[in-house]
Write a protein that binds this DNA or RNA. Structure first.
Length: 882
DNA sequence: TTCTTCACG
DNA sequence: ACGTACGTGAAGAAG
């Protein structure tokens, strides 16, 4: 069987990929979509072809150079966008790492290289697949050379294949004639002028009739159409030149031997590291275990269940200056405890597995002892591990997860493998790779060796990464933030999660049941009015029913169909009863599925729900709440708000709920230093009314409700990074009006404008925004050449310092409130945080003390130019306390 | 999985 | 000309 060769047109495929794959970038802000798309296309082709040889050709001159030439000629082509340009060296690096031969030679176009290699391969008896986004190469097609043109359509890549006969089928000319066809018609994407007045249609007719350029000119007089005949006669030079330009050279002198382009294993350790950096997570699975395993270190990991060995391990860790630990467990239950990993030095690593006398209790007891002695301990994700630690103070601990988050809060997830790679330049295998889908306990029993490697490298990485991360926190001036806010908060969040919040299951059930009747009623009515049964929950079906079948106005919007979002439907509701019923249905269905049914699943012992409070999710420094999300319990609409009645304090307790009054606007007043805004807050009057009075030049008492509402929207808009379009949408006014409001606002509070402009400027300079407490948020979008993305970056640069500072402040308040409750030996517990609000389950005899603590600690959490005010309420459920 | 919608601050 | 408010998480539909 003949051997196969795949040749790839580098720039052309990269270009295709860039425009076909949605924008992607890694944590460093490097754009990666073109590289990603390129690799996907390449892997797909390689899987299909399974070739023995592979090469990628590039032009030596960046395509921009050719585009420049072209621009002179026609002046239409845009230069290569920066986002693509920066990916050119990256793909070359990736190919090099994978051992793929890249061919480029001064003075040669990629086409010439490809043509030469293809013909040479064919001559040596190979089957050649030539991959390009360009049709130029069709002239190379033969019975053994297949031109493959990938098309990305809606995320899917389809490939058109052309052997010689396929070219004839598609273009009615042979590959060789294709050159002259192009010479006649020119090429808009290349630098080929062609003959004026001759387009694709005429060119094809001529070639079909006469077979060649020479023959066309030999029979010029036979050509009936006068204008064409004259143009051909006048432009023979141009036709000849075009033919030269269009001809791909297949006889170039290349120093390429088949040996150089023979296929090797692509999935090398070097490639693995690069893929990690580029965050091509779903490509990592292609790497073989053996290829990436670091064997040198593995041998020093010591896994044991021997009591004496364990004692040695703890003794060593106790002697060491610092140590690392990691509890490996699937849940807090005894039987789900897989191991405790300990590192006292890079070559002193133990994985202690409970068995026989070596119990979980013993291991965790010894861990607690180790911590009690004050040993400096680093770990990954300390929050759940506090189950085995006694400390209220966190100074001796270092959570590498928290550090990694502070250093780059934009990542989607943080794994030990990432930290190993980023901090140590070390490739370690992920849990998924080593243990597959097994639980830790199962893996420890059934895949001992893999488990040892996983646990060993994890704690090894933690141990080694700690000093490096610490130094980076210092360099970025975030050590204080880390030590004083984030680490203490890990402890607070652990206890909040553990505490949970009580709900009344029967009342929740009753609430859900009450919704069902009305939901069914609405469903029937809607189906009746629509004249058919359909799924109202399906935006697709709903859109079709409303805008096609019933022909309601205002259709069209999203890519996939009609928008049926609330703001669209609300405009139609007054006129069409079915629409208001749909809106009501939607509201009820949401309450039922997300809240009534959704929360019920999470009710545990003592009727309590334990949410997870995530500290490493948001870009701005806020915390988030999952499984379930207790930060989005309904509030704005009365019917939804009633759900809060099922959230109750335990017997003998009440809720105390305190929320900051406009904390973000007060932060803005402080950070901007705007005297007017500060003064407005000092006067202690309704801030939105004051703003309305100033912005609309109306005496304070005469401000209308509408004016106040508008001013409030502007206040919000400012915090979001105002845009006239956004404001106009929110208020349903014209963009022009919105611009006027904003202009007036900035005239009223001139330093606010200065501040926002400065924040954008600084973020552009530094590449990140920064809060009062030093928290950073990178804003890579500011460098984008895309208007929309850049505008987004500007809004982010305005919002992040404000939202982030507010987040810092409430975190400080949480730590202080929690500490006071502890220090004063109160029974009351902090149980929830909702961004600007704290909920304390308060013992009835501690009501006054708790209120005083919350008031003091929340107000004094930060020292601003304006006071921080709170609204505090007490109640026998969450509804009443808010 | 990805998209759309909608709940909160 | 571009087509958006900032930050989240969950559910349901559809690919």
């Amino acid at each position: 069987m003949s051997k196969k060769m795949v040749l790839i047109d580098g720039h052309s495929i990269l270009n295709r990929a860039f425009y076909g794959v949605p924008d992607l970038s890694n944590a460093q802000g490097l754009h990666t979509n073109a590289v990603y798309g390129f690799l996907n296309i390449m892997f797909k082709i390689l899987e299909e072809e399974k070739p023995e040889f592979l090469a990628v050709a590039f032009d030596v001159h960046a395509p921009t150079f050719r585009h420049e030439l072209y621009k002179e000629y026609k002046g239409t082509r845009k230069p290569m966008p920066e986002e693509l340009r920066e990916q050119v060296p990256v793909i070359k690096e990736v190919l090099k790492a994978m051992g793929v031969c890249t061919v480029e030679k001064a003075g040669l176009e990629a086409d010439d290289i490809l043509g030469t290699l293809a013909k040479k391969g064919e001559k040596d008896g190979m089957e050649v697949a030539l991959v390009s986004g360009d049709r130029d190469l069709l002239q190379i097609a033969s019975n053994h050379i297949k031109i493959r043109i990938p098309k990305t359509k809606g995320g899917k890549t389809e490939i058109e294949d052309y052997y010689a006969k396929d070219v004839e089928d598609a273009y009615q000319v042979t590959p060789v004639q294709f050159i002259e066809l192009k010479a006649l018609m020119g090429d808009s994407s290349d630098n080929i002028p062609g003959v004026p007045k001759v387009g694709p249609k005429t060119a094809t007719e001529l070639m079909v009739q006469y077979g060649s350029l020479d023959n066309i000119y030999a029979h010029l007089d036979d050509i009936s159409k006068k204008s064409i005949r004259e143009s051909l006669a006048e432009n023979k030079d141009l036709a000849d030149l075009s033919k030269v330009l269009a001809t791909i050279h297949t006889d170039c002198d290349l120093d390429v031997t088949w040996d150089m382009v023979s296929m090797q294993d692509l999935f090398t350790p070097e490639a693995y590291t690069l893929f990690k950096q580029l965050e091509f997570k779903n490509l990592l699975g292609r790497f073989e275990e053996e290829a990436v395993t670091q064997n040198s270190q593995k041998d020093s990991f010591f896994m044991t269940s021997d009591l004496t060995e364990a004692e040695t391990a703890f003794a060593e860790a106790g002697k060491a200056e610092r140590a690392a630990f990691l509890v490996l467990e699937d849940s807090g239950k005894d039987e789900d405890f897989a191991a405790l990993a300990l590192a006292a030095a890079p070559d002193k690593i133990w994985i202690l597995r409970p068995q026989g006398f070596l119990t979980k209790e013993y291991l965790t007891g010894k861990l607690a002892e180790l911590a009690d002695k004050g040993t400096k301990l680093s770990t990954f994700q300390i929050k759940p591990q506090y189950a085995y630690l006694n400390q209220d103070e966190t100074g001796q601990f270092f959570d590498v997860l928290i550090a990694a988050y502070l250093l780059n809060p934009l990542k989607n997830d943080y794994s030990i493998e990432d930290i190993a790679n980023e901090q140590l330049g070390l490739m370690i295998q992920s849990r998924q790779q080593l243990l597959e889908k097994l639980s830790l306990t199962k893996a420890a029993q059934e895949k001992e060796e893999a488990f040892q490697e996983y646990a060993g490298f994890a704690v090894y990485t933690i141990f080694l990464a700690q000093p490096l991360l610490q130094e980076k926190l210092q360099e970025t001036e975030m050590e204080n933030l880390f030590r004083e806010i984030e680490m203490p908060l890990t402890r607070v969040l652990h206890e909040m999660e553990k505490e949970g919040v009580e709900v009344r299951p029967e009342e929740l059930k009753a609430y859900g049941d009450a919704l069902v009747d009305r939901i069914n009623e609405l469903e029937n009515s809607i189906h009746k009015q629509a004249g058919e049964d359909f799924n109202i929950n399906s935006p697709k079906q709903l859109g079709e029913v409303l805008f096609e079948k019933m022909k309601l106005p205002g259709g069209k919007k999203t890519k996939t169909g009609y928008s049926t979002a609330a703001d669209v439907l609300e405009k139609l509701a007054p006129e069409f009863p079915i629409v208001s019923e749909i809106l009501e249905y939607r509201g009820l269905a949401k309450l039922k599925s997300t809240y009534a049914d959704g929360l019920a699943v999470y009710i545990g012992e003592n009727n309590r729900i334990h949410t997870t409070l995530n500290q490493t999710i948001t870009a701005t420094g806020r915390i988030s709440s999952t499984e379930p999300n207790l930060q989005n319990i309904p509030m704005r609409m009365e019917l939804g708000r009633l759900i809060r009645k099922v959230f109750v304090p335990k017997e003998g307790y009440l809720f105390t709920d305190a929320d900051y009054s406009q904390i973000e606007l007060r932060v803005l007043a402080h950070m901007s230093g705007d005297e007017q805004l500060i003064e407005a807050y000092r006067s202690d009057a309704d801030i939105h009314r004051i703003t309305a009075s100033k912005v609309f030049h109306t005496p304070f008492e005469q401000v209308t409700d509408l004016q106040r509402r508008n001013a409030k929207a502007v206040n919000f808009g400012i915090v979001y990074g105002i845009s006239s379009f956004g404001l106009s949408q929110d208020l349903s006014i014209s963009r022009k009006e919105a611009s006027q409001y904003i202009e007036e606002y900035f005239k009223t509070y001139p330093k606010v404008k200065e501040f926002l402009d400065e924040e954008v400027e600084k973020a552009k300079e530094n590449g990140y925004s920064i809060t009062m407490f030093g928290r950073r948020r990178p804003v890579p979008e500011l460098k984008s050449s895309n208007f929309m993305q850049r505008s987004f970056g500007e809004r982010v640069a305005m919002n992040a310092p404000i939202q982030g500072t507010a987040a810092d402040i409430i975190k400080i308040a949480m730590i202080r409130v929690w500490k006071r409750l502890k220090e004063e030996n109160l029974k009351s517990r902090l149980i929830l945080q909702i961004h600007d609000e704290l909920l304390v389950e308060t013992a009835q005899d501690e009501l006054e003390q708790v209120a005083a603590i919350m008031e003091k600690e929340m107000k004094n959490a930060a020292d601003l130019a304006v006071s921080l005010e709170i609204d505090l309420h007490t109640g026998k459920n969450w509804y009443e306390a808010k």
